[in-house]
Amino acid sequence: MDFSVLLVEDDERVRQTLGFALGDEGFAVTGAASGEDALDLLSTGRFDVVLLDLVLPGVNGLDVCRTLRARGDLPIIIVTARADAADVIAGLEAGADDYVTKPLVAGVLAARIRALLRRAGRGGEALRGGEVLRCGDLDIRTDTGTVHRDGVRIHLTGTEFRLLVELAGAAGRIVTREQLVRRVWASDYFGDTRLLDVHIRRLRRKVERDPDDPALIVTVRGAGYRIGT
């Protein structure tokens, strides 16, 4: 089946060129030239993933990202020409699952989209055969992609959920940073672990009783992370 992509990009030439290229990769692409247009389309239509430029007229990409994340767990990939740490981290902290930098290669971007859709459970891939993992006082239900504490659901994005499953599945063993990036994002990112750092912070804010003193997602200095008991 075709997956629907909302491409939010104010440069018409880039929007058309990338739209055609992703179409050749099997995606159904709808373009939006501004943040306002994107929010309108998302209010009336259904999309599987959003490609979101940071620099937009009117409502900027960061505000669009925050609005979408407040609405739910729709997968979001930030597209930016500015690869410095501040811009990338700002996009991820706003709720994006991933980021790519311009100039874009359609085949590489398509692979990243498919990997993100698999993490979000929209690509037909089941996690660990539908088992229930216990992590401290959390119940992680891999068949439904949900996490509960005391019967109350904790809402995670697909990426946050996959990260938690990887840690919980290791049953207290250390998982290195490189292993987590490779398993969750299906990439080595050439040593770039900003994605992991931000998602660990976001995940801790949701699942730890005290995010400043984490007991579930434990940092093993110089090695990686392990799940607490």
Rank of each mutant, 00 (worst) to 15 (best):
residue 3 F to V: 09
residue 4 S to F: 12
residue 6 L to C: 13
residue 11 D to P: 06
residue 11 D to L: 01
residue 13 R to M: 15
residue 14 V to A: 14
residue 14 V to T: 14
residue 14 V to S: 12
residue 17 T to N: 08
residue 17 T to H: 13
residue 18 L to A: 09
residue 19 G to D: 11
residue 20 F to S: 03
residue 20 F to K: 04
residue 21 A to V: 14
residue 24 D to Q: 14
residue 25 E to Y: 11
residue 25 E to G: 07
residue 26 G to N: 14
residue 26 G to Y: 14
residue 28 A to V: 09
residue 31 G to S: 14
residue 32 A to F: 09
residue 34 S to M: 13
residue 35 G to V: 15
residue 36 E to C: 12
residue 38 A to G: 11
residue 39 L to F: 04
residue 39 L to G: 08
residue 41 L to G: 09
residue 42 L to S: 09
residue 44 T to N: 13
residue 45 G to Y: 07
residue 46 R to A: 11
residue 47 F to C: 09
residue 47 F to Y: 10
residue 51 L to R: 05
residue 52 L to G: 08
residue 53 D to A: 12
residue 55 V to W: 01
residue 57 P to C: 11
residue 57 P to S: 13
residue 57 P to W: 13
residue 58 G to W: 11
residue 59 V to C: 10
residue 60 N to P: 11
residue 62 L to A: 12
residue 63 D to G: 00
residue 63 D to H: 14
residue 64 V to W: 00
residue 65 C to W: 04
residue 66 R to M: 13
residue 67 T to F: 07
residue 70 A to D: 09
residue 71 R to N: 12
residue 73 D to M: 05
residue 73 D to C: 05
residue 73 D to E: 13
residue 74 L to G: 00
residue 76 I to D: 01
residue 77 I to K: 04
residue 77 I to T: 00
residue 78 I to Y: 00
residue 78 I to Q: 02
residue 80 T to C: 06
residue 80 T to I: 05
residue 80 T to A: 00
residue 82 R to D: 04
residue 83 A to V: 02
residue 83 A to E: 12
residue 86 A to Q: 09
residue 89 I to N: 01
residue 89 I to S: 02
residue 95 G to V: 07
residue 95 G to S: 01
residue 96 A to Y: 00
residue 98 D to V: 03
residue 98 D to I: 10
residue 100 V to N: 02
residue 102 K to Q: 11
residue 104 L to G: 03
residue 104 L to C: 05
residue 104 L to W: 01
residue 105 V to G: 10
residue 105 V to E: 15
residue 107 G to E: 06
residue 107 G to T: 11
residue 110 A to H: 02
residue 111 A to I: 02
residue 115 A to M: 12
residue 118 R to V: 15
residue 124 G to N: 13
residue 125 E to A: 02
residue 126 A to S: 08
residue 127 L to R: 11
residue 128 R to A: 08
residue 132 V to C: 13
residue 135 C to P: 07
residue 137 D to Y: 07
residue 138 L to G: 14
residue 141 R to D: 15
residue 142 T to V: 04
residue 143 D to Q: 10
residue 143 D to K: 08
residue 145 G to R: 08
residue 146 T to N: 05
residue 147 V to E: 02
residue 148 H to D: 15
residue 150 D to T: 11
residue 155 H to A: 09
residue 156 L to I: 15
residue 160 E to I: 08
residue 160 E to A: 05
residue 165 V to K: 08
residue 167 L to V: 15
residue 173 R to V: 14
residue 173 R to I: 07
residue 176 T to Q: 11
residue 179 Q to R: 13
residue 182 R to Y: 10
residue 183 R to E: 13
residue 183 R to L: 10
residue 189 Y to F: 08
residue 190 F to C: 09
residue 191 G to R: 14
residue 192 D to C: 06
residue 195 L to Y: 02
residue 195 L to S: 03
residue 195 L to W: 02
residue 195 L to G: 01
residue 197 D to G: 00
residue 198 V to S: 00
residue 198 V to R: 00
residue 199 H to E: 03
residue 202 R to K: 15
residue 202 R to P: 09
residue 204 R to M: 10
residue 205 R to V: 06
residue 207 V to I: 14
residue 210 D to G: 10
residue 211 P to I: 07
residue 212 D to G: 01
residue 214 P to Y: 01
residue 216 L to P: 06
residue 216 L to V: 04
residue 217 I to A: 03
residue 218 V to K: 03
residue 218 V to E: 08
residue 219 T to P: 10
residue 221 R to I: 02
residue 222 G to H: 00
residue 222 G to Y: 07
residue 224 G to I: 10
residue 226 R to P: 01
residue 228 G to K: 03
residue 229 T to S: 06
